[in-house]
């Protein structure tokens, strides 16, 4: 057989042709759409996020308006769909408004940590040697604290408030993201395709951009998605301890804290903010699982 013969392609030709010409992300989207659970979870999440963003449109009551007469009422009482809290505020409206802060506390620290930690990991992994040691050892210092303790320590130092909560959580999430980004970069850096790129005379920045980033982005993106749920829970925990968002602002963790005394009076109402935290973080977790599956090109 002559080497110049074109390779014979079997019957899957049509499929190949259909697949060919699609970018990597187009294929990821295709696979995501075929995954029912991920799809359902993403839709639910989208509903939660949209309702939180557009809270004023969906709210039935003023989230701050209290009523001494209508305290801790069960769902359905006098137009309060989900009942009222310990000072008679409409729980449905407060959960909507609380979602804004809770989701912000979930997404903002992870995004910031992704940018900072991801780049630090890339630099550490690609340079190796002393730069790597310097970055990774300082991360180890942060790693030495349990994450919640680190967040509490930072918040305790800086004082309560939304900005400080986000800052504290960002610092908490940077080390694990750096570690993942560094591990993947180190793996990819020694791959032969990176050697081939170096052998073609490419400069490090170009190699990182073209050959390393697209291999590192997948794993850290998936990991970051799973961090969002942890971030929401940690933010809730900080508020619960009085270090995060301050009353009377609505935030799920803070609401849980305030309603916990009512657990014997009206357990259904008291459990609602906790249920929201649970549902949202489960959604993010399942979504990250689905993403990981969809983004694995080798499947």
């Amino acid at each position: 057989m002559s080497a110049q013969d074109t390779i014979v392609v079997p019957a899957t030709d049509a499929v190949r042709r259909a697949q060919a010409g699609k970018s990597y992300w187009a294929r990821v989207r295709e696979r995501l759409l075929a995954d029912r659970i991920t799809l359902a979870v993403t839709v639910l999440l989208a509903v939660i996020v949209l309702m939180a963003i557009a809270a004023p449109l969906f709210a039935t009551h003023d989230p701050m308006a209290s009523s001494v007469l209508a305290r801790l009422k069960s769902p359905g009482y006098n137009g309060h769909w989900l009942g009222t809290d310990e000072v008679g505020r409409d729980l449905y409206s407060r959960i909507l408004y609380g979602g804004r802060l809770s989701l912000l506390c979930g997404v903002a620290p992870v995004t910031l940590a992704l940018l900072i930690g991801g780049s630090l990991g890339l630099i550490a992994g690609y340079s190796g040697g002393i730069v790597n040691s310097l970055i990774m050892r300082s991360m180890d210092v942060l790693y030495a604290f349990p994450s919640i303790l680190l967040a509490i320590a930072i918040c305790g130092m800086l004082g309560s408030g939304l900005g400080n909560t986000i800052l504290a959580l960002t610092v908490t999430f940077i080390p694990p993201i750096v570690r993942i980004s560094e591990t993947v970069t180190t793996q990819v850096r020694s791959a032969e395709f990176v050697e081939a790129a170096r052998a073609s005379g490419a400069r490090p920045v170009s190699i990182i951009r073209f050959h390393i980033l697209n291999n590192v982005l997948g794993p850290i993106l998936v990991y970051a998605t799973s961090l969002i749920s942890i971030s929401i829970i940690l933010a809730a925990g900080l508020s619960f301890l009085g270090l995060g968002v301050t009353p009377p602002d609505a935030e799920w963790g803070l609401m849980l804290n305030n309603l916990r005394q009512a657990i014997w009076v009206n357990p259904l109402v008291a459990a609602l903010p906790g249920a929201m935290i649970f549902i949202t973080s489960m959604c993010f977790n399942l979504m990250s699982d689905g993403l990981r599956t969809a983004m694995d090109v080798r499947i």
């Binding site: 990597y24 791959a191 032969e192 395709f193 050697e195 081939a196 790129a197 073609s200 005379g201 490419a202 400069r203 170009s206 073209f210 050959h211 697209n214 291999n215 997948g218 090109v297 080798r298």
Partner: peptide, 23 residues
């Protein structure tokens, strides 16, 4: 190693084209 010497996230075309773009 023909597998590890190709970037798994790059199309065949882009893998080949990368070198010339560097130059």
């Amino acid at each position: 190693d023909s597998y590890s010497s190709l970037n798994p996230r790059c199309t065949v075309e882009d893998t080949i084209a990368y070198g010339p773009t560097v130059h």
